[in-house]
Design a protein around this nucleic acid. Structure first.
Lengths: 224, 224
DNA sequence: TTATTTCCTTGACTTTTATTAAGAAGGTAC
DNA sequence: GTACCTTCTTAATAAAAGTCAAGGAAATAA
């Protein structure tokens, strides 16, 4: 049943089996069906968790209905609510299981004493936090300095660079892409066909292919 | 000479005098003249520091010459280069002393063993990091969902709300404001006079006054 | 004081992005 | 197959943001 075990994550690899067992004792295992909200924006959610199975999207939503996907969490990823660190701080994003997902959760209450007791563990956690901070920083930069075309080119490269030249099914909807770059489906559609006009990609209603990595990289690097 | 002492900062308040002395022994004190660059974007800068005196601006710059002020650090604030946590990670912002500034710096090398040894210290540091993450999150939200007018209104409120009704000197230049909200001086100027047309502020070349907090708050809350 | 520099203001114009609306293609359920 | 639903596509239009250019006010230096 376990798809992903604690010891495989960098954050837990330094623990002995006994310690791991204790950590598991302190944790809650919880399964979320597809499209279930794990926590909402603004809620005081005091957990740190490991994605043992499935897939989670962290998303910001504006009251006008626009949304921005900030990060996605895969099997083996560790994430947290800010409330885990500072009581009373509301979630800066909502978390949604976009497949059936199993999380292993630790409440602040249970884990904090262990962290304070184990400086190495706490230190390793700061490193994870630093990585997340860099992620946020990159998004910030794109949003501040890059036009939509650049952000879209970057997204295409990040997601499909390794399959460059292959014809792929369009598994991300226009809305998905728009949410990842902070724009609208229409803009994404238009820019995709613009890329196509320039020969950078080939695209139709259901599939597409990257034909000129170089061009996309140029577009993505504008403003960098 | 010391304007700000270690023990005044929340991060260090739990240490005994002996420990504080040791921390000071491990640190480097460095003074930067006005407008000096403390570190550049992208550099592998492995320090955590306390601002003992002066004022530091953390800024992102695009090659096209636009810039975005991400945060400002006052006396007593603690900040760090990402390299302090993860070797090889380049600074996501540049740091500039915008007055004569004295920092107390700890290299990763010197402080990491102390953190690993002292879980409480490491835990307290994670809290600071969580706060910074929230800051970044708020900027992200504004940039993604709020138009320039909203971001500007928010800036005015954040900076001058408490002096609402008073006539103030315009100490922030248009460029300063533009950099804080990710826009251009012309846009800022235009929106300021637009606010003035609506009776929300009074403004001339050298001074201004907030006359309708409510109006500004409405504008700032659009998209929230 | 005069010269010089920095900063503010404005209008005209361009570019980018978003909105609205309509229709078509593909997939799914019956 | 037909009806229905979702997603994609495109055009027209509007709104927002940015750029360029010019001129003027204030501050600073000589």
């Amino acid at each position: 049943m376990t798809r992903f075990s604690l010891s495989e994550n960098q954050l837990f690899e330094k623990f002995s089996q006994v310690e791991l067992d204790h950590l598991i004792d302190c944790s809650i295992e919880k399964t979320y069906p597809e499209d279930q909200w794990i926590t909402h924006y603004g809620s005081d959610w005091q957990y740190l968790f490991l994605v043992e199975q499935g897939h989670v999207t962290a998303i910001k939503e504006s009251p006008e209905g626009r949304s921005l996907v900030v990060t996605t969490l895969e099997e083996g990823d560790v994430f947290w609510g800010v409330g885990f660190f500072k009581e009373g701080m509301g979630m800066p994003v909502a978390l949604i299981a976009d497949q059936e997902t199993r999380l292993r959760l630790w409440s602040r209450e249970k884990l904090q004493p262990i962290l304070i007791d184990n400086g190495q563990f706490a230190w390793d956690l700061t490193q994870l936090m630093a990585e997340r901070m860099m992620q946020a920083s990159r998004i910030l930069e794109e949003l501040a300095f890059q036009p939509v075309a650049g952000r879209l080119a970057h997204l295409l490269l990040a997601q499909f660079k390794d399959q460059s030249g292959d014809t792929m099914a369009r598994d991300l909807t226009l809305d998905d892409m728009a949410a990842r770059i902070g724009s609208t489906r229409e803009m994404v559609c238009r820019h995709l066909y613009q890329f196509s006009d320039k020969g950078a990609i080939q695209i139709n209603r259901t599939e597409f292919k990257i034909t000129d990595l170089n061009y996309l990289e140029n577009i993505a690097d504008k403003g960098k």
